[in-house]
Amino acid sequence: MPIINVKISQPASAALTHAISETLLELTTRILRKKRELTAITLTCVPPSQWVVGGSTLAAQGKNSFYFDIKVVDGTNTKDEKAQYIAECFAAFGKLLAPLHEESYIYVQDVRAEAYGFGGLTQEYRYIKAKP
């Protein structure tokens, strides 16, 4: 884990999906110390004509945007790590989706270990079972 849900204001393409997923995998592994093999990413493409910022579509503004949220277990990352992650992800998406609208968002969501898991097991359960 974690799971990352991404929305971008670009048409779907295999090349862009690959670039976004590799970027997020690298940053999530390096900065947040999450396991690459357990990280899941979903990508949704929204037409710029259907993405509105400040009352005007991105198509009319000639810009692109993104939003993504990542769910991590509460207490596993520091404020500094999350701030670095947000800054580096924003910069990376700025290169991938230029010209990027400043109103693009990243949400690092801290979730309780007993309320979050995969494979039918909570992270709390995994933590307890790993103790000798």
Score class of each variant (00 low, 15 high):
7 K>F: 10
14 A>G: 03
130 A>S: 15
7 K>Y: 12
93 F>D: 07
29 T>W: 02
106 I>P: 08
1 M>S: 14
89 C>Q: 08
52 V>P: 09
6 V>W: 08
95 K>V: 12
14 A>S: 00
81 E>T: 05
80 D>I: 03
58 L>N: 07
91 A>V: 09
95 K>H: 03
50 Q>R: 14
41 I>Y: 11
96 L>V: 05
55 G>D: 10
44 T>F: 11
28 T>D: 07
1 M>Q: 13
41 I>G: 01
98 A>C: 04
68 F>Y: 14
67 Y>A: 14
53 V>M: 08
73 V>W: 04
131 K>T: 11
107 Y>C: 06
84 Q>H: 01
115 A>C: 11
131 K>W: 01
75 G>P: 02
64 N>S: 15
44 T>P: 07
14 A>K: 00
75 G>T: 01
44 T>I: 05
93 F>Y: 13
102 E>L: 03
29 T>N: 03
38 L>N: 07
40 A>C: 03
63 K>F: 01
102 E>S: 15
37 E>H: 08
36 R>H: 14
40 A>P: 04
18 H>Y: 00
69 D>A: 12
64 N>C: 07
123 Q>I: 06
102 E>A: 15
76 T>F: 04
81 E>A: 08
55 G>N: 10
96 L>E: 09
32 L>R: 02
4 I>H: 07
39 T>M: 10
65 S>P: 09
123 Q>M: 14
102 E>D: 14
59 A>F: 10
74 D>M: 05
103 E>H: 15
69 D>L: 06
14 A>D: 02
80 D>S: 04
99 P>N: 02
31 I>Y: 04
92 A>M: 02
94 G>Q: 01
122 T>H: 05
